[in-house]
Design a protein around this nucleic acid. Structure first.
Lengths: 204, 204
DNA sequence: TATTATAAATGAATGGCGTTCATTTTTAAA
DNA sequence: TTTAAAAATGAACGCCATTCATTTATAATA
């Protein structure tokens, strides 16, 4: 009755726990996508998850907390994809261009996270004590940082500007693209800007 | 007893109205600067202004509304300064560089508005119906847009990229600089980035 | 199986906030 | 002095994130 091929060796309690957690996350993604972060109440999420309101706080510390969780896992997915790209041995500028396209497609595919992603990078609106020291945004920046670092060492990227500063610029492209009033796809927008930036970054 | 050189020809009622408005604005600036936007309640503002809570809504439609007002007037100040610079007949790239420094100094001098400024450009967190169509951020962009437009016509700025896109990039520099983890002054940060961007923008 | 201990779920209660509104106070006009 | 209108007011409303005492479900133990 116990280990009859259910799911690993997890007891019922463990399984139900994971199940509840998943239900909450799925519900949150659905509600955030439909209504945005602020317009979604914890009650909304827990109704969609078909669980009591109080249960939410057994799994997440706060409403901000689940948002950070969602973003963290998305960034992790992206980091995987970038790892694969890096294995192909392209030059730094080429790699940047590829990663840019990849990230753009990724965010196009997960369009609803864009506002959340940006809201998360902008912590100015959050209570002082609640700002996330881990900050998902910098992790996003790190992807570029590593590539640029390598590029500088190989002499492909100009050395008179700190890598961190360039990484920041790339990151800001995404922010701008998200709010672009121009009638371009996210991918086109990012691609053009990256080209502009690369022309100023390439070692002569 | 009426027009005895008080203040123009305004009646007591008009004067008191302006006075109340000013008291509210001053209080809001002070409170926002001290505690940030979200952490400041309308009650906080009105206590600091020494007026009843309800009075707030005789002058502003909402808490967001006063924020937008504040930013709008700051941008107007900046537009004035830029107008003066333009009269000096510099080339487009030179003008951009000057404006950039000017804006950076301006925001350094008004450091507390930076988070507000950015929060305002990020309207993702605001209820759908309340997003400000006027958007202060695009007006900021327009300053660059005009300069770039002229530069393109004079052949000083490359023509294979839409002006709006370049303007967006400049705007995003400010966003990034505000959240920069680097130990640079706002002005240094912006100046370096502008240089990077210009190298890729200058017509060859 | 029966009993005890522990983890998880629950929703009413709490406190804070933005906003509204009926009422009062102040100023202007007649 | 009376009347009309603008401005001020704060209690009340509704919404919401979060807490907590209590209940329910599961695991451990005898």
């Amino acid at each position: 009755m116990e280990g009859t091929g259910k799911e690993e060796t997890l007891g019922r309690r463990e399984r139900k726990k994971l199940q509840s957690r998943k239900a909450i996350i799925d519900a949150a993604v659905k509600e955030f996508a439909a209504k945005g972060f602020r317009e979604t109440s914890v009650a909304d999420i827990m109704n969609a998850a078909d669980l009591g309101i109080g249960t939410f706080y057994n799994y997440f510390q706060s409403k901000e907390d689940i948002l950070m969780s969602l973003l963290a896992s998305l960034i992790e997915q992206m980091e995987e994809d970038v790892k694969a790209l890096r294995a192909e041995g392209k030059s730094s500028p080429e790699l940047i261009a590829s990663v840019t396209i990849l990230a753009a497609r990724f965010l196009d595919a997960n369009r609803f996270v864009l506002p959340l992603f940006l809201a998360a990078s902008d912590q100015s609106g959050m209570p002082e004590g609640k700002r996330d020291k881990r900050m998902k945004s910098p992790r996003f920046k790190e992807i570029f940082e590593n590539i640029l670092q390598e590029g500088q060492e190989k002499g492909e990227i100009r050395k008179d500007v700190p890598v961190l500063l360039i990484a920041e610029m790339f990151h800001s492209l995404y922010q701008a693209a998200a709010f672009s009033a121009l009638d371009l796809s996210f991918e086109e927008n990012i691609a053009m800007k990256t080209r502009m930036l690369l022309d100023g970054i390439r070692a002569k």
